[in-house]
Nucleic acid binder design. Sequence first.
DNA 1: GTATGATTGAAACATCTGTTTGAAACTCGC
DNA 2: GCGAGTTTCAAACAGATGTTTCAATCATAC
Lengths: 234, 234
Amino acid sequence: MTTASNPTKERILSAAELLFAETGIATTSLRRITARARVNLAAVNYHFGSKDGLIDAVYERRLGPVTDEWLTNIERLERQYGDDPAPVEEIVEAFVLPVARLASDEVRGGRIFMRLLAQGYSEARHYFEKLFSSQYQHVLDRYRQALRRDLPDVPGETLCWRLQFLLGALTQGLSGGELLKLIEGQADPRDTERAVNELIPFLVAGLKAPAPKPAEQPRLEPAAGTADSEGEIA
Amino acid sequence: MTTASNPTKERILSAAELLFAETGIATTSLRRITARARVNLAAVNYHFGSKDGLIDAVYERRLGPVTDEWLTNIERLERQYGDDPAPVEEIVEAFVLPVARLASDEVRGGRIFMRLLAQGYSEARHYFEKLFSSQYQHVLDRYRQALRRDLPDVPGETLCWRLQFLLGALTQGLSGGELLKLIEGQADPRDTERAVNELIPFLVAGLKAPAPKPAEQPRLEPAAGTADSEGEIA
DNA sequence: GTATGATTGAAACATCTGTTTGAAACTCGC
DNA sequence: GCGAGTTTCAAACAGATGTTTCAATCATAC
């Protein structure tokens, strides 16, 4: 009914995903999408209601399986280890692998979507916040609690920060590595298997790091130059 | 001539930066910008030539000082330690602080720009690639080499990957933490000083992590469900 | 075959986009 | 005070955008 049985709907989704990732969501017109999908312009509004509906559908198609896998994995760990803390490595792997699997889904353009995901916070923020608070928050919290049990020396707040860093490194690392190309020609940014192999020790070590000393001295003394005050705008 | 002495130019830049960060670059019209800046519509084309010119100027205004500071810091370290390897902590701090200083520049809306930076790869990619290859690549390489000397056990490629992860965690961590809010209400995402304090141990530990074992078994066996083949689009 | 509902098609809709124009308003040296 | 150069302004420009319309086509059950 919803998938695969309806070819034009899927054609539109794939074309949209590709073009969104290539040139951004806002700058991609429905005409470019429908031309790429070899489908009539009106088909988008017919099948998805509006461009916003299409955007939602593009994200939904990919993110659903990831959430499911996240949930499956954490539940497996909880069952497996009971009240004992699961090893950090396994928790991290349980979190990273579903995303990596998405990124490595070449035939369905997974990596393209990863780039879309990395930019999601900006262009489709309202959708993300809705989606996040309804689904991911819950899952993410399970992972946080699992890590918490395993890292008694890391304060709760610090763990929150580190989860944020983890998410940043994860999306950046799996989104195809535009930056990596620029750092040096060496590593192949398309090698997801390799990316995972590199990511996990990095993240595990970061999570396990000793908690930062509370304050020391403030390191952010005001910058040297440029002291114009810049009037507010009403 | 160029800065501060020309009020409308600065007004446009600030209004554009704010709106770009709030609603994205492509979806922000010149009319919204000029209205916010209380300036005539034609002023943008008069002062910046085009919308693209304005986008460039917005990025340039913030990124110039960061690059300068990056360069200053790495040169100070090179001078200070000579042929000895500088401690990883200091290298990381020398890299993180200029960005953090930018993010904490509340009066000039630095954090807003950080969000813009985090989304920069997608919306202003062409500009970023130009800018990156002309400026950052060079600086980033100095940091990479400094770290390389200090981490002889970490293979070159692995270090490249880790630099990428570092950049991801850095932008995500300093961009105001939309995610952090959602993880849990605890930490204050606006506390840049705190973010730096948390970032540095995390990144240092990640960089120092033992190198990953080459291959093991492939961890990305194809996902369980969803086996529709998804026709290509020509 | 024919009638019913879902889908496609080409064309037009109003609106918004970045940019340009040319006249008015300034600034500043003389 | 005047006039050259810079900056502002309102108005218009051509083009692209998302959406709607309504007839044509398709599939399917009777």
